[in-house]
């Protein structure tokens, strides 16, 4: 089982709050811009849910298939 992760980059302001909730999925690169893994094992779901909670722009989504 995998989950699909989507970030609305028109909303994302690169605050990086998600990084600490799901470090395997989200990171800020050298230019302080968000990078993320778009597909991950279902075991990451709880972490991604936590990242969704703390996103100040509410820009993170799990795409349910």
């Amino acid at each position: 089982m995998t989950i699909k992760i989507d970030v609305d980059m028109s909303k994302c302001q690169h605050y990086g709050q998600c990084v600490f909730e799901a470090p395997n999925i989200f990171r800020l690169n050298n230019d302080d811009k968000l990078e993320y893994v778009a597909e991950a094992d279902d075991s990451e779901r709880a972490n991604v849910e936590a990242a969704i909670d703390v996103c100040p722009m509410q820009a993170i989504f799990i795409v349910e298939k």
């Binding site: 690169h14 605050y15 990086g16 990084v19 600490f20 800020l28 690169n29 050298n30 302080d32």
Partner: peptide, 11 residues
């Protein structure tokens, strides 16, 4: 101000 990755590194 700016340097978010650096700030995060100190967390």
């Amino acid at each position: 101000i700016g340097l978010r990755s650096t700030v995060q590194g100190y967390r």
